[in-house]
């Protein structure tokens, strides 16, 4: 191991932070893949894999991935919710790996909601 210079320290920090930022629960975008029984049966696991692949290929550091159970609309699974910080969450339905790629390009990176795949903007009211 060669001796560190000050710039190296910043480089190591940025590199390591990519993997540890997740622990602080802070991100620009949060993606929730719905993995209830219905979601899994409809291929949700492949959607999850596609999401993680996109994250890697695009080298995105500020996107958190989470899972949740059935969203109550089993006929439209696989589903995922994309929540950009400060904006209403968007639910995407009837997903395929191809659609995931498009949603990444347009919404998560591009900032425009991919309306043709979106079910609705916003969530149900709880309580």
């Amino acid at each position: 191991m060669p001796k560190l210079k000050i710039e190296d320290l910043a480089r190591i920090r940025d590199q390591a932070r990519r993997s540890t930022l997740l622990r602080e629960g802070a991100g620009r975008v949060k993606i929730i893949v719905h993995l209830g029984t219905c979601g899994i049966a409809a291929g949700g696991r492949n959607i999850m894999a596609a999401v993680l692949r996109e994250l890697e290929e695009r080298n995105l550091e500020d996107v958190l991935v989470s899972t949740s159970g059935c969203a109550g609309l089993c006929s439209r699974e696989p589903m995922m919710t994309v929540e950009v910080l400060g904006q209403a969450p968007v639910k995407y339905v009837d997903l395929t790996e191809g659609k995931v790629r498009e949603i990444f390009a347009e919404h998560i990176v591009g900032g425009r909601i991919a309306e043709r795949y979106a079910l609705a903007v916003g969530s149900e009211r709880a309580m």
Binding site: L9, R13, Q15, A16, T20, R23, E24
Partner: peptide
């Protein structure tokens, strides 16, 4: 938040800055 046996984890949290 960090693995205490990994210096990179400490550096990631602004360690040694």
């Amino acid at each position: 938040l960090i693995d205490p046996e990994k210096i990179e984890d400490y550096i990631a949290r602004d360690g040694y800055q």
